[in-house]
Design a protein around this nucleic acid. Structure first.
Lengths: 113, 113
DNA sequence: GAAACAGTTCTACATTGTGTAGAAACTTGT
DNA sequence: ACAAGTTTCTACACAATGTAGAACTGTTTC
């Protein structure tokens, strides 16, 4: 349910990079493309409805921020993908089989008790 | 680019479960829903275009099979998700931080040299 | 407090992906 | 050559997304 379009992804990326609460105008300016503010507002609303963005309604202009960090969100995505298969560990085994030795070492370190 | 709709997913699931090359008719029969064969053929064609399904055109009826195993395909999805972030390992670290002790043990075993 | 302005919501339209299937075209055994 | 089975073409509905104008609302200023 949390698939994002290109523009939605750009906006999230922006919010993640600047850990700040941004106004729609700020988001609009910082985007590479040259879009109408209403466009950005629409996208922000949609992201809010999807639960990816949190909006401060008390201030004027409203300020928007990502509800979860990029990492948290991506982990959620990973788990969503893993939820589509019957044997989660089989997939993880194969995933690990495909990573570089370098990354494998990093994973070992993370896992070491 | 490899997001699947519900029906597409059902069909893939079927092809994965039966490791066989199936005809459109067989797929159609084995699906729970009661669909027209042409519907199944459309979906199979779309899956072929996406590269998820391979079709034997020499036989009559054509036979369809998944190009990659469910695990391979899911790993590809995982890597696609991981490709959207700048710091892949940060995500993996967080992912591992969230798994059960049981699964962590399994991962350690897979990673052990 | 009315006007000007900034910001937000509503509404709308185009495009694309997906589910769905009939009509038309094609293949093959008899 | 025809009937039966199979595939391709075409088509339509519905949802998600990109896009933005029109209308509304809240704020500031004279």
């Amino acid at each position: 349910m949390a698939s994002l379009g290109d523009l939605e992804r750009s906006v999230m990326s922006l919010l993640w990079d600047s850990g700040q609460r941004l106004s729609a105008n700020e988001v609009c300016e910082q985007l590479d493309e040259d879009l109408a503010v209403t466009t950005v507002l629409t996208v922000l609303s949609r992201l809010e409805k999807k639960g990816l963005v949190q909006r401060e309604r008390t201030t004027r202009p409203h300020r928007y921020a990502a509800t979860a960090s990029r990492e948290e969100h991506t982990v959620q995505m990973l788990n969503e993908v893993l939820g589509t298969v019957p044997d989660r560990e089989a997939v993880l085994a194969r995933f690990i089989g495909g990573v570089s030795e370098c990354e494998a070492a990093a994973l070992r370190k993370i896992l070491s008790p």
